[in-house]
Design a protein around this nucleic acid. Structure first.
Lengths: 76, 76
DNA sequence: CTCAAAAGTAAAGAAAACCAGACATTATGT
DNA sequence: ACATAATGTCTGGTTTTCTTTACTTTTGAG
């Protein structure tokens, strides 16, 4: 894939949504703690499935958690 | 990961958006043709990055291309 | 300071995503 | 019928995501 990395607001949302720890988020999403750490730090972008689950646990839409830069042309 | 698969509307959107072929979508997204086929058929869910790029090429929001079932509990 | 919880780091391996190439199938048109 | 484009299938291989385990650092409360 391209070197364009997706950014996220997990850390901010974790605290806005009741001080949820990384461990608790990981457990609720169904992944390990270091996966959450890696995603949160932007070391790699998660699978779409995991992205949806994170957004669901944080109870916000997916595009509120993950931002995709590269907003140049449109096809319409 | 969990056996919960993400569904998509790529096929429909490809035709609504000017008869784009799988090969053209693949090229514009930057992946191979059989990756597009596999995603479109739901054989596996793409990376978040690729999901964003597909949505961008089809010029619709991500959640218009990919749907996540599993709408049981909420976290509020 | 001391104890514990939370966050971070690292490395080996498993699993899933993605690629490459060749070939089969289903249209669509002439 | 023939040619061509679009879609689908199969196999084998590489890359990335994710897990497991173990350890270190930071943070906050008593």
């Amino acid at each position: 894939m391209k070197p364009t990395r997706v950014t996220n607001s997990i850390r901010r949302l974790r605290f806005e949504r009741g001080e949820m720890t990384q461990a608790e988020l990981a457990e609720r999403v169904g992944v390990t703690r270091q996966t959450v750490i890696a995603i949160e730090q932007g070391r790699y972008s998660p699978s779409l499935e995991m992205a949806f689950q994170i957004a669901h646990v944080l109870s916000v839409p997916l595009e509120d958690v993950f931002q995709y830069p590269n907003h140049q042309g449109d096809a319409s």
